[in-house]
Amino acid sequence: MSPDPQIELVADQGRTLTTDQSSCPLEVRGLTVSYGEKPAVFSVDARFPSASMTAIVGPNGAGKSTFLKGTLGIVPLLAGDVRFFGLPFKQVRADVAYVPQRASVDWDFPARVIDVVIMGLYREVGLFRFAGTRQSARAMDCLDRVGMQDFADRQIGQLSGGQQQRVFLARALAQDAELYLLDEPFAGVDAATEHAIVSVLKQLKADGKTVVCVHHDLSTVIAYFDRALLINMRKQAEGSVAEAFTPETLQATYGGRLAESQIDELRLGLA
């Protein structure tokens, strides 16, 4: 049997990488998720090209987080097809890192900052072995990248909201993935954290990685991202920020919920 030409097994890491780097990091067709009988996301198609940074934008309850969870199979799909690097998620897990909302976990959990980051190395450490010095060094390196190296031994409950968010990002960095999916990484964080996270994400993009963020702050979309996906249950717009993030598409997405002044402000930002 000749090996599948699309797939190359990297023996020392024991994981599958796609050699066909031209294939899209994330491609979604007809994604539909429903809670009960009310669809939260309805038939959304989207492509997230390689080395891009996309903001998923939309009003509260528009299904942004649900869309992200749907792609990863965290919530069951009613319909739709999701491909990561041309393959189902199960085959390329190691290349995808997910950063959930900070509020989704109990921060009084008995763990130190370094313990949480080492959780990102789960696939390497394996099921039964203890994390060794090499893993600890890698985890420290990831903490360093988000400016949290001095906090490695702190109990996670003692951190500020922004610091917690940076620990979550460090855990994703430890996975050394090709695609990073982040759920509201800037929600409720301080200015220093926002700055630190943006520069890490921009560096990832510069290194050829792909970044997708659920994002709620319309005023920073243009400064931080190069692509936008506007969702309000259905897809309202998709493309480069210049094409997709316009006063018209925003009006369509948010309906009457955006004030004229906000629209004007964004128009100025675009000009």
């Binding site: 199979g73 199960k90 997910y98 959990f109 990102g120 789960y122 696939r123 996975q175």
Partner: peptide
Amino acid sequence: RPMTMVAFDPEHAATVGI
């Protein structure tokens, strides 16, 4: 290890293949 990860953050644990 898997039990700890599921207890702390089940969504993340699911995405790494637990």
